[in-house]
């Protein structure tokens, strides 16, 4: 079954089976999530994508449901200016990158901020905590998110 969709801003047609999940097809056909396995239960956050502005675990989305829809993956998001600027802040804060969660956490945070632009620091802290990981980068991500919000606020006040 070949389905057209918009993947990270590009029109593509992917070939997959009706039984397959979006994660499996994206991994095999589009070469995304190459270095990642996932829990296949929708809990680990490793395979999250934004499907028409809503963040979903791609391992639980049947491939046939994405016809003509827009999909953004963490790989796609990591090419954006927003991501690069946020990474600079994190590097200044002393981020020790975690191979399992860093990009997923950033993607998850920005997907939330996209839906709820007025979110505050405490909300961001909770959102970061939703992706469970053993690594010690969470305090740095929280500080980075706080600085990002301050920067956004400064821009907003400046415009006014």
């Amino acid at each position: 079954m070949k389905l057209p969709l918009i993947l990270n801003g590009d029109d593509v047609t992917l070939d997959g089976d009706t039984r397959e999940s979006l994660f499996t097809v994206l991994q095999r056909e589009a070469g995304v999530f190459q270095e990642k396995t996932n829990c296949r239960k929708g809990t680990c956050g490793r395979c999250h994508v934004v499907l028409d502005s809503k963040e979903v675990p791609s391992c639980l989305v049947p491939f046939f449901q994405v016809k003509q829809r827009e999909v953004v993956t963490p790989e796609g998001f990591s090419q954006t200016d927003e991501y690069r600027q946020f990474r600079l802040i994190l590097d200044e804060e002393g981020l020790v990158e975690c191979a399992e969660c860093t990009d997923v956490q950033i993607f998850h945070l920005f997907s939330y901020l996209e839906l709820f632009p007025q979110a505050g620091k405490e909300e961001c802290r909770m959102v970061i905590g939703e992706i469970p990981c053993r690594c010690g980068s969470r305090p740095v991500l929280e500080r980075g998110a706080a600085r990002w919000l301050e920067r956004k606020e400064a821009v907003r006040v400046g415009r006014r």
Partner: peptide, 15 residues
């Protein structure tokens, strides 16, 4: 590296 040291300790504390 100060950040790496803090990261390692934080990891242990979470554990």
């Amino acid at each position: 590296d100060e950040a790496s040291a803090r990261n390692a300790v934080t990891e242990g504390v979470q554990m």
